[in-house]
């Protein structure tokens, strides 16, 4: 079975789906990403689907599940590069991908993640001192 590679770039995990995935490959990616988020402590995931010529309900659900799992693991997911024909088809299929952040390309996805992270820290600062307990480093020491 083929496997979709997960690359670590700075503090972001980048997944570029270049193959027509069998369902099992999509499920494997879901697991691999969860493992890598935990192993690396990355707070952002970018999934580039610009090479995909379709997204059906199975892949759509997998993307939504990845976004949910990431969030539970304190990482934000952005899906980037969706082709216009894929977007049109997804909406007609009835899949609006609620809860998934999207951006037009990898660069904009990275900006979105950076902004999201900055906003999170602002929110935490407003809460006072609690933010220290939230970082893995503080929890580990």
């Amino acid at each position: 079975m083929e496997r979709v590679p997960v690359l670590k770039i700075g503090d972001i995990l980048l997944v570029s789906i270049q193959i027509d995935m069998e369902d099992q490959v999509a499920l494997q990616l879901q697991e691999d990403l969860a493992d890598r988020i935990v192993a690396t402590g990355c707070h952002g995931v970018i999934i580039d689907i610009s090479a995909l010529d379709i997204v059906d309900s199975f892949v759509g659900r997998t993307l939504a599940t990845i976004a949910s799992i990431s969030r539970v693991l304190d990482a934000e997911t952005v899906v980037v590069g969706m082709r216009p024909a894929v977007a049109i088809t997804l909406v007609e299929l009835g899949l609006s991908l609620p809860g998934i952040r999207t951006a037009l390309n990898v660069e904009l996805g990275m900006e979105l993640l950076a902004r999201h992270r900055a906003e999170e820290f602002t929110d935490l600062d407003e809460l006072g001192d609690e933010d220290e307990a939230d970082t893995p480093a503080a929890a580990a020491s």
């Binding site: 010529d53 082709r83 024909a85 049109i88």
Partner: peptide
Amino acid sequence: LVDQTKLVT
């Protein structure tokens, strides 16, 4: 292209 995408989906 859009119809191809719809049909394949």
